[in-house]
Amino acid sequence: MLEIKNLQVAVEGNLILKGVDLHVKPGEVHAIMGPNGSGKSTLARALSGHPQYEVTGGEARFEGRDLLDMDPDERAREGVFMAFQYPVEIAGVNNGYFLKAALNAKRKHFGQPELDAMEFMQLIREKAKVLQIDQSMLSRSVNEGFSGGEKKRNEIFQMALLEPKLAILDETDSGLDIDALRVVSDGVNGMRNPGRAFVVVTHYQRLLDYIVPDYVHVLSAGRIVKSGGKELAHELEKKGYGWLEAGTQPVGA
């Protein structure tokens, strides 16, 4: 589903990702772990097409197509979804209106009829229940004045609505209390199926107790320095990242 080869990404002229390889098949859950500043978000943003993140080498294919050649919105409509580490507040844009526009953009892309207001509300109600989302969140501006937890839940809510083929979750666990973490994880687990893949970026092993990955990769200084099964996450929990970073150059301060 996702084939990344030797991906190199620069931000503001600094090379951050220095050759990343990753192969994700349908149905799999891959966890990307690593210390702060190792390039986890850079990977997520580059895959979703953020204009600030410049791909300077390597390739990324999604279902056989050149992902890097697509506009960010085309990637989204094709089924790549990134849950933002820091969801953006958008004053004046009604959350419900935005969700409907996003959903209909995708439906139109696949030649499906747009949902009318009734059908949309029904769908929203259904998904909101699973994620324990208060309906009032729909009438507010996108993410504006949302608590950290509300923002993260809104991201997963959008994922549930848009039903992507590939979901990249960037530190969706940070800022969540244990109850919210459970709700969000249940939401994600409920969406796992043989046709859908997840790349779960996290700094802490805690999330992986709830969303159990098939593979764990450790990103350090812009490279994947170790890959393994879910037991690698527990090892990291015990030993920290230090033993893996030895000999590699730390990124940032």
Binding site: S48, G49, H50, P51, Q52, D71, P72, D73, A76, R77, M82, F84, P87, V88, I90, V93, F98, A101, A102, A105, K106, H109, V142, Q158, L162
Partner: peptide, 14 residues
């Protein structure tokens, strides 16, 4: 706001 533009595009809006 570039970030807001990107956020909306990342959800499929042109």
């Amino acid at each position: 706001d570039e970030d807001a533009l990107f956020y909306l595009r990342a959800r499929g809006l042109t």
